[in-house]
């Protein structure tokens, strides 16, 4: 059949691969997450008897097992750490990224190379040094190390530099200067609104990383009242055994803030720029 004569079916035909792509990937993405939620509702040992596709009858017991711990306190600790870490890290990254993207200054190349070089260092390497340092500062067994670790995030700086370089036109900055704005004023008033999608992306990722961080809390925190969610998972056990189902339930409950944040942030990621702020 001729393509030209039937425009409607061409449209369908052309979109078909796109639809298949979307459906296959979405199913692959959704299924394990769904299974994780389902796993939290089963009896722990039953998890291993095969892939569970439907909700089990053990939710209430697992929920009780989780709640026997001081889960809300750990939730609060995690939120405190993640919010402080993320807000701080976001500002630090955006400022530095902006400077690297839009200014010429002495030593810029070398300083930026240093930022990228930090990316290359395996995170676990600095662990002992960090614990030692926090002990010297008498800050071990507080939440401070968890908040501050990773706040100077090379990844964030690199991302912001790339993003600002590609999306903030120099004219806007110049026009701000012409209008007599101070440099920081330009950043806060003109640049930040433009890079909102990037800020949201980084906010989400920083929050997620801080929220899931395990290694640093593991070695820093030995007091139950300072536990974050990933640490508290080790507390969850039943009578004689490690209760994986309850642990997974707790961890699923731990993903709720991420889901909420993402649902809110999601629409800004694609909306495009506010009309008039940038000329392409």
């Amino acid at each position: 059949m001729s393509v030209r004569r039937k425009p409607v079916s061409t449209l369908v035909l052309r979109k078909l691969p796109v639809w298949i792509f979307m459906i296959v990937l979405s199913v692959c993405a959704l299924l394990p997450f769904y299974m994780m939620v389902v796993m939290g509702t089963h009896y722990s040992e039953d998890l291993y008897t095969g892939v569970k596709l439907f909700f089990g009858k053990y939710f209430v017991q697992n929920f009780q097992t989780v709640m026997r711990q001081n889960f809300l306190l750990y939730y609060w600790n995690s939120i405190l750490v993640a919010v402080c870490n993320t807000v701080g890290g976001l500002m630090v990254s955006a400022l530095a990224g902006y400077a690297f993207a839009k200014f010429d200054f002495k030593g810029k190349a070398a300083l930026f190379a240093m930022v990228v070089a930090t990316l290359a260092i395996p995170q676990q390497l600095g662990l002992i040094g960090f614990v030692l340092e926090m002990r010297w500062l008498k800050l071990n067994n507080t939440l401070f190390p968890l908040i501050v670790s990773g706040m100077a995030n090379a990844f964030g700086v690199f991302w912001m530099r790339q993003y600002i370089g590609g999306s903030v036109p120099d004219e806007i900055i110049e026009s701000g200067r012409v209008d007599g704005c101070k440099e920081f004023g330009i950043f806060f008033r003109l640049v930040l609104p433009i890079i909102r999608p990037a800020l949201i992306t980084i906010f989400l990722l920083f929050f997620l990383w801080s929220w899931n961080s395990y290694m640093t809390p593991l070695v820093m925190i030995s007091k139950e009242e300072l536990y974050t969610i990933p640490l508290s998972i080790a507390l969850i056990s039943s009578e004689y055994r490690t209760d994986y189902a309850a642990r997974i339930l707790a961890l699923s409950m731990g993903t709720i803030p991420i889901l909420i944040l993402f649902s809110f942030g999601s629409k800004y990621l694609i909306k495009g720029l506010v009309a008039g702020s940038v000329k392409g």
């Binding site: 979307m22 990937l25 994780m36 997974i248 961890l251």
Partner: peptide, 21 residues
């Protein structure tokens, strides 16, 4: 919006669960 969220789920699925699955 929904599809974005769905396709981001693997990134936030709990590692312990991922291992078992």
């Amino acid at each position: 919006n929904g599809l974005q969220l769905i396709n981001f789920l693997p990134y936030i699925t709990t590692p312990v669960a991922v291992g078992i699955i």
